[in-house]
């Protein structure tokens, strides 16, 4: 079991659901050692994702995780968490999971949590901080680009 497959203790999902969830998230956004970034199944990221799932969507996600488990078992005889990345991706794509509503819900939450993780932000050469209060620098740009526009006659209409 890798780090990202460790159990995340939550009050909202069962232990078995959490295991499938971690694997599923790592399937959707896998870790990348060359970029030194975790997958979305990283424990710290999963913890934020689980906290972000609204109560109303929890059942939808739980049912979706059951479905993933059932489909995998039916096709390979394995549990989803027992498959390697390639096998999990094969399962994800062959069953069209990306089109399922629970993946759309989960995927949106995962994106929000993943791309605000400090490790991910740093890999994108971003400072892992809020915009305020430091703000950002923006270059002025080349204002001489306006010269041809300045030379144009007015383009608004006169009113009789």
């Amino acid at each position: 079991m890798t780090n990202s497959q460790e159990l995340i203790a939550t009050e909202s999902l069962s232990d078995s659901h959490c295991l499938v969830l971690n694997s599923l998230l790592d399937t959707m956004i896998p870790p990348d050692s060359t970029l030194s970034i975790p997958g979305a199944g990283d424990p710290a990221i999963v913890e934020r994702i689980v906290k972000s799932i609204r109560v109303g969507a929890l059942q939808q996600v739980s049912e979706g995780l059951n479905e993933v488990e059932a489909l995998t078992h039916e096709s390979s005889g394995l549990r989803f968490v027992e498959c390697d990345q390639a096998e999990r991706e094969e399962c994800f794509h062959s069953y069209g999971l990306a089109q399922r509503s629970f993946i759309r819900t989960l995927g949106s939450i995962a994106i929000h949590c993943y791309y605000t993780d400090p490790r991910v932000m740093e890999s994108l050469e971003m400072e892992p901080r809020p915009p305020f209060p430091q703000g950002f620098e923006l270059e002025q740009g080349d204002w001489s680009l306006l010269d041809p526009v300045r030379e144009r006659p007015k383009i608004y209409r006169n009113i009789p």
């Binding site: 959707m28 956004i29 896998p30 970034i37 994800f92 995927g107 994106i111 993943y114 791309y115």
Partner: peptide, 25 residues
């Protein structure tokens, strides 16, 4: 970053899975 990723996914420019990071970048 979030808007970029969601836009990419929504328009099919970013996949889920092993091609995700390269496509995002």
């Amino acid at each position: 970053v979030v808007g970029t990723a969601l836009t990419g996914l929504g328009y099919g420019h970013i996949p889920w899975g092993s091609g995700h990071h390269a496509a995002y970048r």
